[in-house]
Design a protein around this nucleic acid. Sequence first.
DNA 1: TGCACGAGTTCTAACAAGCA
DNA 2: TGCTTGTTAGAACTCGTGCA
Length: 299
Amino acid sequence: MHKTLPLPPLTAIRVFEAVARHGSFTKAATELGMTQAAVSYQIKVLEDRLGAPLFLRRPRQIALTEVGQRLAPAVTQAFEQLSEAYVTARGGAQGTLVISTIATFASNWLARRLGSFQIAHPSLAVRLQTEPHLVDFSREEVDIGIRSGRGDWPGLAAHRLINADFTPMLSPSLAASIGGVKEPADLLGLPLLDPGDPWWAKWFAAANVPAEGLSSRPGASMGAQAYEGNAATAGQGVAILTPAFFAAELADGRLVQPFDLLCNDDHAYWLVYPETRRNSPKISAFRQWILGEIAASSR
DNA sequence: TGCACGAGTTCTAACAAGCA
DNA sequence: TGCTTGTTAGAACTCGTGCA
């Protein structure tokens, strides 16, 4: 017959989870509304039960022991499941879905489609956060991230959404100002937006156009494709952009893509979330919706 | 600055006794 | 019999302090 060991006090496990996550007794105590001494006591209770230390006490810092490293992921996952079970018990995927995304994806892709998700899930409030850095799911209250990269983030589930292809785009009026853009080299006669962007050098190299000294050319660096796309639409210069983000501008003629040549540096835009939250109702709902939208837009 | 530990305090559960 | 009240022991906490 299967025999289970009695569990240690839930309080001690809760405290261990917080200490392991923060890497600090003091920070865990602050989060849990206890004193540092109480946290120390609870960890000691757990260590006594286990018969092995969970943390290495070093001057000014602690570190998980091998036993602690084995225990921490399982405890974190267990609390995630408890949390999700609680949410489910309260009535399913209610609450707020917090999405951390880069500005261009938010403004040029997500915002244009998010309405259909809201109609399908009226009880779920969506909060979009645009930020340039990679969100830390263990420290920030974020459910889902949309980020660019190669999809290799330990502990995170990643779904490829859009390839980060890039190609030059400009307004029809700017193209007409030089009698039309017929050859890739013609672009060098026009102002380039963010000429120091490595994408330009790669694209010109792929087009067999010598383009030394791009980074020393004058030109504004705006830090986001959304801004550069707007500048290009206004005729301010040629931007190097991802076509998937500017499908509407290309369709209605505000932007033109003079060449079919697309480049890619092995990056893509990814939907990511912690593996442990895979079965969260709100994350499942959003994952199903966005992957459906991606599939529909690529048909 | 951050963790460990001792002393003292508070909280909680278990139990017994009293009462309607 | 079931509920309330008082007592007690142990758990869990805070505070103060020492140490690295």
